[in-house]
């Protein structure tokens, strides 16, 4: 069912294996429509193999992550940029 999705918050655990910062608090710009918003606000579909995060504006796939026993595949082609909040340098 296309309406069965979770928020980008659900990516926090799986992505914590890959990144040392909390990616869900970063802002992402959608390659499809240019919408900018927190990764936590994406729509995450868990029925696909792995996790598929879509833009809440245009439904373009922004991010995909698939975990195998020995590796993680991270596909960010739907994301123009990630803006990651950092402490002042």
């Amino acid at each position: 069912m296309i309406d069965d999705y979770e928020d980008g918050n659900a990516l926090a655990g799986p992505l914590s294996e890959i990144f040392t910062f909390d990616v869900t608090t970063a802002d992402t710009r959608c390659a499809g429509c240019g919408r900018t918003g927190p990764v936590a606000g994406l729509r995450v579909y868990t029925h696909a193999p792995g996790l598929v995060a879509r833009c809440p504006g245009c439904e373009e796939v922004v991010l995909r992550v698939v975990r195998t026993p020995t590796a993680a595949w991270l596909d960010l082609r739907g994301s123009v940029a990630l803006r990651i909040p950092l402490a002042p340098a």
């Binding site: 918050n9 926090a12 655990g13 914590s16 909390d22 869900t24 608090t25 990764v39 936590a40 606000g41």
Partner: peptide
Amino acid sequence: IRGPVGGWF
């Protein structure tokens, strides 16, 4: 247990 995760909500 793995966590805590999620810094937005």
